[in-house]
Design a protein around this nucleic acid. Structure first.
Length: 473
RNA sequence: GUCCCCAUCGUCUAGUGGCCUAGGACGCCGCCCUUUCAAGGCGGAAGCACGGGUUCGAACCCCGUUGGGGGCACCA
């Protein structure tokens, strides 16, 4: 029995976007479901556009989401290194093997020549793609090219046969002989290309299942060809459909912020992201929508992944976020809120914060919203906003002063008694509860919207409450 | 152009020939609850892209059309 080994191999480009993360999640879920290993590998063969910063971003995102890896950056592993830019020797050796066995050849065509031939092929109504010019060069021709100073690329000789990929998600996908052309695996400067590196790494790292976006579906037969030429057995592929935006176009920069980092900063829970993303293109088969990480791992099955592209819906993510926030223990929730409060410049009293959780948890769509909800508790700068000002202005003459006086001498300072007192005040002024309480809410919180009033005042304390009401009276 | 992938409510999906007068969730609408805002409860509107087959019977099978998307790079 072979152990399942899955991998996630992002091209580092800063914080991962939610589409990439979903591929990573599916790969991770499959590995964990089978008790196998999850490998993280950095695909930075195109070194020109990679920065350490970008790599760190992706690593942080995965850690935050709780998609832990058994092998890869920061943790090492038996197949290290896990950065393609550090595996040059391995690719060089593979290239030598391929060249020696005749599965690859040196190609002297220049980019201009290739482009020109592609254009004329297209003009003739023929399919573009490499025409095999350098496939069977004689030694003399090769020598002539070398003498002319042409630096060759290495091109993989794609066997002229039907290719079949038995994909876990897409089913059996086939390409007729001749459709897949020879492709470059090593640049003229000697650096390896993606199509060489993935195949070599998946083979050498013992990957059994490749879960990735279906934009790579057509790369699969080429990956398989290289692996087989190297004498290996290809992994099983599972190409999951793209995540698209509301406009049904693949997720990209123009959809605004779709990075994991963005959602983290907005105060989305990693649990919500994981739960939501898992449901994007997959379902457990029953009506469950809210699942814990363990439940996801237990229920996940690549065969149940939908084969059509899914649109990312922030509304549902947000609902799930609020739903999960409501289920959090108060201590846990409070701890997660601290960062946002601090970021907003509010000095946080941990005890008070903890006590305030029951008042705000069903009101928070994101953790960030705790700032607006509880600012009145952690700052005495409660300049009433426009609507609050209007409410205060509308209060009957002397109403707020009476409220301050009454609360100042209230026997027991707790929500129940405060509520009774507020009601008594409203009644004596001939106001209903809504009309009677709003001016007080406005004076104390500076807003027309706040957590439940009596409970809020209890937490605020008599002194601060009375002072604020007097200031507005 | 060519090859490949895809097609159930606005969105995510259940559905693998009769259990479907198509189920759930988000969103939306209405009502209830209610100190604001939420949350919650109840109810509602909303869908099998189109056309041909196959079959006693098609959301489910086949073909075509249309519409999306991806590949055909010395990107990944």
């Amino acid at each position: 029995m072979t152990t399942v080994r899955c991998r996630f191999a992002p091209a580092p480009s800063g914080s991962l976007h939610v589409g990439n993360v979903r591929s990573a999640l599916f790969s991770w879920l499959w590995a964990r479901h089978h008790g196998g290993a999850f490998v993280l590998r950095v695909e930075d063969t195109d070194a020109s556009r990679v920065t350490d910063e970008a790599i760190r971003g992706g690593v942080e995102d995965l850690r935050w989401l709780g998609l832990d890896w058994d092998e890869g950056p920061e943790v090492g592993g038996p197949y290290a290194p896990y950065r393609q830019s550090e595996r040059a020797d391995i690719y060089r050796a593979a290239t030598e093997d391929l060249l020696a066995s005749g599965d690859a050849y040196r190609c002297y065509c220049t980019e201009e020549e290739l482009r020109a031939r592609n254009e004329s092929a297209t003009a003739r109504g023929e399919a573009p793609g490499y025409d095999g010019t350098c496939r069977d060069l004689t030694d003399g021709e090769r020598a002539a090219h070398e003498a002319a100073g042409r630096a060759p690329t290495v091109r993989f000789l794609m066997p002229d046969q039907t290719w079949v990929v038995d994909d876990l998600v897409k089913g059996e996908v086939r390409w007729a002989a001749g459709e897949l052309r020879d492709f470059v695996i090593v640049r003229a400067d000697g650096s390896p290309l993606f199509l060489l590196a993935v195949a070599v790494d998946d083979l050498r790292m013992g990957i059994t299942h490749v879960v990735r976006g279906d934009d790579l579906l057509s790369a699969a037969p080429r990956n398989i060809a290289v692996i087989e030429a190297l004498g290996g057995t290809p992994p099983v592929y599972a190409h999951v459909p793209q995540v698209v935006g509301p406009d049904r176009k693949p997720l990209s920069k123009r959809h605004g912020s779709t990075s994991v980092e963005h959602f983290r900063e907005q105060g989305y829970l990693p649990e919500a992201m994981v739960n939501y993303l898992a449901l994007l293109g997959w379902s457990p088969g029953d009506d469950r929508e809210v699942l814990t990480r363990d439940e996801l791992v237990a229920a996940f099955d690549l065969a149940r992944v939908s084969s059509n592209p899914a649109a990312f819906d922030t509304e549902k993510l947000t609902w799930l976020n609020n739903h999960l926030i409501q289920g959090l223990e108060d201590d846990d929730l409070a701890a997660r809120c601290v960062h946002f409060l601090a970021e907003a410049g509010l000095g946080v009293d941990p005890v008070l914060l903890r006590q305030a959780m029951p008042l705000v948890k069903e009101r928070m769509k994101t953790l960030r919203e705790v700032v607006d909800l509880l600012a009145f508790l952690f700052s005495d700068d409660v300049t009433p906003n426009e609507r609050a000002t209007a409410l205060i202005a509308k209060a009957p003459e002397g109403y707020l002063k009476a409220a301050a006086d009454a609360l100042d001498v209230l026997g027991t300072w707790d929500a129940a008694h405060i509520g009774e007192q507020l009601d008594a005040l409203a009644t004596s002024a001939g106001l209903n509860r809504t009309k009677g309480w709003q001016p007080v809410r406005a004076a104390v919180t500076g807003s027309n919207v706040s957590p439940p009033l009596p409970e809020s005042l209890e937490l605020l304390g008599r002194e601060r409450t009375v002072a604020r009401i007097r200031a507005c009276a």
